[in-house]
Design a protein around this nucleic acid. Structure first.
Lengths: 219, 219
DNA sequence: TTACTCCCGACTGTAAACAGTCGACTTATG
DNA sequence: CATAAGTCGACTGTTTACAGTCGGGAGTAA
């Protein structure tokens, strides 16, 4: 006699705040809200059909994720990235992911790890002819999985906090540039390096991957 | 005829939200709000003499900093750290700060960098006989400076997002354990390594510092 | 006693209203 | 015409009020 209503099974109904958060993130990383644009709370709350209070909570979070920058007197605007900032973001990303790679090498059952990673790559391979957005999505999913599999919640959380900035970097540079980094082979190399259990090699592989990724974006 | 009022000079008046944020952060990292404790919005808003709306914005930020964890139906509680989580936090911290060290080595004028760092160490040395809290404070200031001097805003921001967790780690382990890591000499070693410009050495020095720091905490 | 129902209290989610401040435009004045 | 004072409008900061929901305890029937 259960819920014909909605929040069936694992599908939790999200709060308006979370919905707004997703909507805004998408709007920003898709370029719909162009960089430098001033955000007006009353405007947005009206667009999203939510109250300002609820909206403001979401904005605070986006601000902390680095998607928004605060001007004088709390005026928010969509963050603008220049090439240096993109390189900076990728430097931090590289630091985090190289930690992930090293950690995975020292893990007990790398069987499970490499299996999950191969799956993620298979998804990428399957969508290799899909839209740019889809390819980017599956790429990010691979790297997120890399962090998640370490079991280090703090690492995963830090990476996810950076995710918005990463997306903005790709958007900024242009999707056609970003997609250069989606090579399936390069990702297989990473997994192979982890598979050997050689932490130094895995770290080196990731760092190189990130280096070329950043170079591709700002080139 | 200027302001006898208050917001004189560079001293900006903080919003209630920011005040609440600081107050809560301090309360949590000092242990006044013990780990695992459930937070009730109406209680806190009354304690801090602010409205719930304003409070909630601060809570969202603390949540994202990892000081609070969300239970079912939005119930917030002070995060509880076990030894593994402390190690995880320090692993991420090490990754970030080793990036900082490497970056500083590649910087143009390391003169300025080492000068600033030496200043920060001098502050530590001056307060070496002060209270535990003060010593911890000056230690964190040194490491924050390390990140700030890189000029990589994203790096600094990531580190600061982690700062709350770092403070909790020290608090959790006990201040007397945390203070073991405040050795002035060890910090001088770090600066010396950066001063040589040898990125690999600097990275190694920081990683070892963080390793022993984490070990001291969970030992 | 046990189990079941119903009601009440406690919290969070959300919305709407109020207050203060800064900037831009207008107007008056030399 | 240029400059200064004044007024209006737009936003953010903050508070207050309302709605929905979950959990627990009182009460009741088997």
């Amino acid at each position: 006699m259960a819920g014909l209503t909605a929040p069936l099974l694992g599908l939790e109904k999200k709060s308006l705040r979370e919905q707004a958060l997703s909507a805004l993130r998408t709007a920003i990383t898709s370029g719909e809200l162009e960089p430098g644009r001033h955000l007006v709370e009353t405007e947005l709350s009206e667009m999203l059909q939510i109250s300002r209070g609820t909206l403001r909570e979401a904005l605070r979070q986006l601000e902390q994720e680095g998607l928004l920058s605060a001007g004088p007197r709390g005026r928010l605007s969509v963050r603008h990235l220049d090439e240096k900032e993109i390189r900076d973001i990728y430097a931090v990303r590289a630091a985090l992911e190289s930690l992930a790679a090293r950690t995975l090498c020292e893990l007990a059952d790398r069987q499970h790890v490499t299996k999950s990673l191969h799956q993620a790559i298979d998804v990428m391979a399957a969508g290799a002819s899909g839209s740019l957005e889809e390819r980017i999505e599956s790429d990010l999913e691979f790297h997120r999985t890399l962090c998640r599999l370490t079991g280090n919640e703090t690492l995963l959380h830090s990476w996810e906090s950076l995710e918005g900035s990463i997306r903005m970097s790709i958007m900024f540079a242009g999707l056609e540039k970003g997609v250069r980094n989606m090579s399936v082979d390069r990702h297989r190399d990473i997994v192979a390096a982890i598979d050997t259990g050689d932490a130094a090699l895995a770290r080196k592989t990731i760092l190189e991957h990130m280096d070329t990724a950043a170079a591709n974006l700002v080139a």
